[in-house]
Design a protein around this nucleic acid. Structure first.
Lengths: 150, 150
DNA sequence: GAGCTGTACTTGCAGCCGCAAGTAGTTTGG
DNA sequence: CCAAACTACTTGCGGCTGCAAGTACAGCTC
């Protein structure tokens, strides 16, 4: 009845926590210092940039960035204040709000992407060889179920 | 100059974010509902339980649970209010505070551990075969550098 | 077409966190 | 010794987050 995890299982758990903490806190700090963006901000901008017309419904955006609807509302509030995102109405359903990436948002994102992608490689993927990279990805995707690239 | 990450690298990054989010949010919810503890609370109790004399200096504890000193102060505040932890002075240096696990803390931890360990297996390690488990662990430990079990 | 149910988003609120500043105590250098 | 520098912890503050409730709209049913 008492689930005695093996040492291997406990180490795997600690490793996940530690790796996530280390990598995200470094990336967060770099992004914040060099571009004034949080990881959450960056993620929102990125999803919008990838979407057709560079706009998404709030609900869809919230799902993609793994955030609650209310949490997303505040993030978008801030991005609108900074002029990186615009809110638009959706023809055909007046309840829906679209978040639309502005030109300024695009250019901020482009610059931030250099920092971010460099950081991912420096703090994460660059420390692994190709086999490790594949193994990590496939194992972590097994846990959550595979994702479309969104 | 622009670091073009490969698709494999981007997937690895998404997988880390997604897996961490999924697993921790499930574990957090279970622990909260069944025992009124957050993951952070649990981690603090666990580190204390493992320490000699079931007590640690605030600074050492903060390092182990990957939390800022101020953050740890509040967590311990709450645990003291709940009677799970006691604050003690350290003979020989009056600046130091020891967090000491109480008997009540021990028993709450023991009960919570069942939920938590079951959850880790159910949502994480149990979804991987032994090879995947070893691969994930070794790769993630490569990223952060290996840890002592503390 | 009036109400009932459901959906999309926002707001009120409270919890958690970290940084910077504050307090208290210790160590070091002259 | 005693002042300056350092260390351990706590507090003030502000930012970020999610849940539950609120608002506005859509769609369904009779």
């Amino acid at each position: 009845m008492i689930p005695n995890l093996t040492d291997a299982e406990l180490r795997a758990w600690q490793a996940l926590l530690h790796a996530h903490h280390d990598v995200t806190s470094k990336l967060e700090m770099e992004l914040r210092e060099e571009h004034g963006l949080s990881l959450g901000d960056y993620d929102v901008l990125l999803r919008l940039a990838r979407a057709p017309g560079r706009r998404l419904r709030m609900t869809d955006l919230a799902t993609r960035v793994m955030m609650s609807p209310s949490g997303l509302t505040r993030v978008v509030d801030r991005l609108v204040l900074d002029g990186l995102v615009r809110r638009e109405r959706f023809d055909g359903d007046a309840r829906v709000m679209l978040a639309q990436l502005t030109e300024r948002g695009r250019s901020v994102l482009r610059r931030a992407a250099r920092t971010h992608l460099r950081g991912i490689r420096e703090h994460y993927t660059g420390r692994l060889n190709l086999a490790q990279l594949r193994n990590v990805t496939s194992a972590l995707e097994t846990i959550t179920g595979p994702h479309e690239p969104h």
